[in-house]
């Protein structure tokens, strides 16, 4: 009897080990690229220029780094070396005022600020002059339930991650509705459905990458709107984890100069890099407060030369990383 029990137990253990090995081989890829090296960090908690109270979004453009400083209700602008240049935005819901600015984007010479509390996208000149606002609170077409991120096409069309709306909306530049992915207000884990989407990025060929926040995955849609693929853990079905290619809440996505996809992996305290087809390339960062460590990497932006800037949320700072030389 004892032998039978031992045999069964041994069989179960072998089965579990085999299953773990399969998962490891199939869903935990190795890095195929050299990593990134930490260059610099700046910022600390506070409200003075150069300090942050919840940095939640970041975008780089023409040698400048724009950062959403959420609880200070402002946008701060820095040189690539971290020197403070200017700031704009005040607390409120009037033109040019901000509630909780989140992910950012720049198109042409205009800054698109996603305003989570005011349910709108505000557009500024790069020096901070408010130009226009798109959207309002609601569940209808062109309305938002706390937007998280925005991407802008060459023709000015907008793609907005509508966090509580559980959808990605495609709008014209004037805010008129074109179409949406996902069912309004309904969480889903299957392809084309969302679980609190946080951000979007648009490749130069029109491919749309959506950060499907609490589904712990990236979803990809073709220029014709058709679902192409998804990745993040086994079957990309809301299975989170700390392994290569897995996520633990996705809060930001950006496309690098070579079309690679950079993802802020919030609870894993790292940035992961993928090829456009979702092949894992490399990752950098780990939890902590020291140089090169993150306490919740919330947003990522990649400069034309490949330098990566990251909003390090709990540490209230910005980090700069560069590709390791081969």
């Amino acid at each position: 009897m004892r032998k039978i029990i031992l045999k069964i137990a041994g069989g179960i253990v072998a089965l579990l080990l085999g299953f773990a090995a399969v998962i490891w081989l199939v869903w935990v890829p190795s890095a195929s690229e050299p990593g990134y090296v930490f260059v610099a960090a700046w910022g600390e908690r506070g409200a003075a220029p150069g300090q942050f109270n919840d940095p939640t979004g970041i975008v780089v453009h023409a040698g400048e780094v724009f950062v959403s400083d959420a609880r200070n209700a402002r946008i701060q602008v820095f040189e690539f070396d971290g020197r403070f240049k200017r700031q704009f935005g005040t607390r409120g819901d009037g033109p040019g005022q901000l509630g909780r600015p989140m992910n950012l984007n720049i198109s042409g010479n205009e800054l698109y600020v996603v305003d989570y509390w005011n349910d709108r996208i505000q557009v500024f000149t790069l020096d901070g002059t408010p130009l226009r606002a798109i959207g309002k609170a609601g569940k209808g077409p062109g309305e938002f339930g706390s937007p998280g991120g925005v991407a802008v096409a060459a023709n000015g069309d907008l793609f907005v991650a509508d966090f509580y709306g559980q959808r990605i909306q495609h709008l014209r530049a004037d805010g008129s509705f074109v179409k949406q992915w996902g069912i309004t207000g309904k969480i889903g884990i299957w392809a084309g459905e969302f679980n609190y989407p946080t951000d979007v990025a648009l490749a130069t060929n029109g491919t749309l990458y959506a950060a499907d926040g609490y589904n712990d995955r990236i979803q990809v849609f073709g220029p014709n709107g058709k679902f192409l693929r998804k990745w993040g853990g086994p079957f990309a079905l809301n299975i989170f984890g700390p392994f290569n290619g897995w996520f633990a809440t996705v809060t930001s996505v950006d496309i690098g100069p070579r079309g690679n996809v950079f993802v802020a992996d919030f609870y894993n305290n790292r940035i992961q890099k993928f090829s456009p087809d979702g092949t894992f390339l490399t990752a950098f960062g780990k939890k902590g407060h020291g140089p090169g460590q993150f306490d919740k990497a919330i947003a990522v932006s990649v400069a034309d030369d490949g330098t990566v800037f990251v909003a390090d949320y709990v540490n209230n700072r910005v980090q700069k990383w560069q590709p390791m030389k081969k």
Partner: peptide, 12 residues
Amino acid sequence: LACPYCAYGIEK
């Protein structure tokens, strides 16, 4: 309750 998206949603 952990990420700012959650916190801000509740505050809102």
